[in-house]
Design a protein around this nucleic acid. Structure first.
Lengths: 210, 210
DNA sequence: TCCGCCGTCCACCGATCGGTGGAGGGCGGA
DNA sequence: TCCGCCCTCCACCGATCGGTGGACGGCGGA
């Protein structure tokens, strides 16, 4: 019997998952959690085999929870189940130690199968997710902006001028422009507005609406 | 017995809703749909009392489906159930004729109650949604950008220069600047990048990631 | 009818930005 | 050790942008 913990902040989704999974002969849902912090507590308390985890949650997000789990409970398999297939989310989750990455538009039987596969230690990726990972590997030429560069770009997203950003980060305006030019090159763009759009698209900057 | 149709593109969510609602003595789920088009067909076929509808769906989105339902099946009550509480989504949905607007992080019992209230013809709004509607009414000073102005702003979001936008819309660059200045004023902003961010935040422009 | 909003356009200014082509220092891995 | 990456900074240019203060015609509601 595979012991499953369901983590999602939407009661509706939790209900759907619990109902379906529990109806499987070889699966049993031992608990639920509504955010990352709760998830950590439940794992310590219940010792599940597989954790089905959403990424965007209040208090503590999924990636952070996965990192903590990988550090504290390396035997637990974490299966990400989310709506979005942003490049950055995928890379972060897999990097943090997720055993698999599924999308919420997947049919229910696939979900149950994925949980079984995860319990066996197999890596399970939804086709679109796998495609993104592969294409990312195939195109290593696409350079990632540095942390500092993103910090500057975040200023741009807030509508600051280069001089403003410089003051805020305690660097010269010239440096701000250098960072920005490099970001433009890396994002394949040549103006600040588009740069912000592309960065948001790739999950490099937080989406404006929360 | 209240007859309910569940419309959502995520099988997990549909499963959760169907399971919970069907377990209520006075509710029965008569059908499901995965997008707006399917929803229209099911309504015509099944004649439900209440439709529980997601907004973001493939093929035909929820708002469009609501408009069609209001035109063709005015007796059917439509209850919006979505993850997001964007101003624009709310206004569009309510304007299109939705009887209520709920969020997916609502507890399940509330959902069932909302369906019952909707069946009685009552308007049901999740508290955050109600708050947004009220604050929007209280602040009519916040002017909405014109369709044309948004068209110009969309060009900006794509990284075009004012001259580019002018060529694309067959208007002079001066006109583009005039539109933009007015948009800035309406959005309470004074540069193009911020304007795009705020517009996305308010749902006036499509989110970059789909 | 007339008022008000919308869309279109103009000239002109200073501020800001995009871009070039440098330079130096620090830090970590090969 | 040395190479490469990252961060920092500079001067200078033309292009673009933000902002002012106008103007005119059209169209729909009061």
């Amino acid at each position: 019997m595979i012991r499953v913990l369901v983590v999602d902040d939407h009661p509706v989704v939790r209900g759907g998952l619990v109902g379906w999974l529990d109806a499987q002969a070889d699966l049993t849902v031992v608990g639920e959690a509504g955010d990352g912090l709760e998830a950590l507590a439940r794992v310590a308390e219940l010792g599940p085999d597989v954790v089905l985890m959403d990424l965007r949650m209040p208090r503590m997000d999924g990636v952070t929870a996965i990192e903590r789990l990988a550090a504290g409970h390396p035997a637990v398999r974490v299966l990400v189940l989310t709506t979005y297939d942003t490049d950055a989310d995928i890379v972060r989750a897999v990097g943090a130690g997720a055993t698999g990455y599924l999308l919420k538009d997947a049919p229910l039987p696939q979900l149950a199968d994925a949980v079984r596969a995860a319990a066996r230690g197999e890596t399970v990726l939804a086709p679109p997710v796998a495609a993104r990972l592969v294409s990312r590997m195939r195109a290593p030429a696409v350079e990632e902006p540095t942390a500092r560069e993103l910090e500057v770009l975040a200023g741009v997203a807030r509508g600051l001028t280069n001089a403003d950003i410089g003051r805020e980060l305690f660097i010269g305006e010239a440096t701000v422009k250098t960072h920005l030019l490099r970001v433009f090159a890396k994002l394949g763009v040549d103006d600040r507005t588009r740069a912000v759009m592309v960065a948001v698209e790739r999950g490099l900057l937080p989406r404006p609406g929360a």
